[in-house]
Nucleic acid binder design. Structure first.
Lengths: 219, 219
DNA sequence: GTCTATATTAGGATAGAC
DNA sequence: GTCTATCCTAATATAGAC
């Protein structure tokens, strides 16, 4: 469970960074190990000396992703958020996902080619859902949100799904748009699922939220 | 645009049915043209005589799917639904998707390997979103649902996304469950997105809906 | 229409010299 | 650590006999 400070060689590090960039931009499925080597200007043989194939690279990239995302998700536990900070929290999660987006396109094929990964990814997803659940509970306790029994769980789960598939869905709907606006719209769509549960006396926050979103949009 | 009644040879038909079953059960990516031929007990050469490769098969399967789904989606236009029938309508859409589910897992990789398909799939998705929009509008006109400006469009879009990714998401969350219960839970999750917009005087429908869902569950 | 046999590739993998 | 050269395999694709 602990994470010994495993320093990577310079080449290993460059392989990971190059692979990540290629996977994100071309799609994992369209990038071969030979491609990675070619882009780096090293030989396939050399690549194999460091990582025995694409799958090992992907596993290591996932491990990086997991570490970072777990840190992000733990933030509100360590230091409870002011209500306005909840939106920023969503942005940060989305940015993390965006950095490793290759994973979220082609999820099925990656997970069933590399069996180790599926349980890890599932656990991470469950953690996401739990975190959202905690957030909703907190907002309920503070009388900002009001739920009928059961609604809260379903919403938390739905938010987790939203974060998982938003980027793919944008791509499908003619995407366009910069990375900034993709993420922005994603956060907006997430929030629009929460607003129906707002209480009357939280109305001021609606205005506050609107300002915040407009501001992000033009930033 | 018109659909001439293109009768298929017996072998062609069997190829399509076998491929569909294999794709759905093993994942499109894990099924080669040789596999298809082997399962049918014919030679790869023979398969190629009828369809020049997997991609052509997939295109034809999509065309079947599109035809069927368009018919389903057109139903409420031809003959407006009683309010209770809306839930059944959702079931039917889900069942159609389920029958061609191989497509919805691995969506990204299929669509960027077969470029013809992407615009077709996008249009079908847009039609889905429009149909949901029409449904919501109708329920609003009948004073069952109440929306703030903008909420309706976002919800319709979100429902379309839900139908697109529900099966993948279940798979990720440890799925289990029969096909029946997968679909049932999917419809339930869809409805739980609509209920927050119900008006007070539609309460009787809540009970009605609950009965219906229980009934389907045990069926 | 169907078969057998063979060709073509592309990607994954290794051996051995430097 | 890095390179070159080579091999293995699985999947696609075609030719030609029946």
């Amino acid at each position: 469970m602990s994470n010994p400070p495993k320093p990577r060689s310079k080449t290993k590090d460059k392989i990971l960074r190059t692979s990540l960039a290629l996977f994100n931009n071309e799609g994992e499925i369209n990038v071969s190990s030979v491609d990675i080597a070619a882009v780096m200007g090293i030989s396939p043989g050399n690549l194999y000396y460091h990582y025995k194939g694409k799958d090992v690279i992907i596993e290591e990239l996932f491990s990086d992703f997991e570490t970072e995302l777990r840190q992000v998700l733990a933030a509100p536990i360590n230091k409870p958020l002011a209500i306005e900070d909840n939106w920023i929290f969503l942005y940060i999660i989305f940015e993390e996902i965006f950095d490793f987006r290759f994973f979220y396109y082609n999820l099925t094929s990656i997970l069933d080619r590399i069996p180790n990964l599926k349980p890890k990814f599932s656990r991470l997803l469950a953690l996401k859902a739990n975190t959202f659940m905690g957030l909703l509970k907190k907002l309920e306790n503070e009388n900002h949100l009001f739920f009928n029994p059961g609604e809260q769980d379903v919403l938390a789960e739905r938010l987790a799904a939203h974060f998982t598939y938003w980027l793919s869905y944008c791509d499908l709907r003619g995407g366009a748009g910069s990375s900034k606006s993709l993420i922005h719209e994603g956060v907006y769509a997430a929030l629009s699922q929460i607003t129906p549960y707002w209480g009357e006396d939280s109305e001021p926050y609606a205005a506050l939220l609107k300002d915040f979103l407009d501001e992000q949009k033009t930033a």
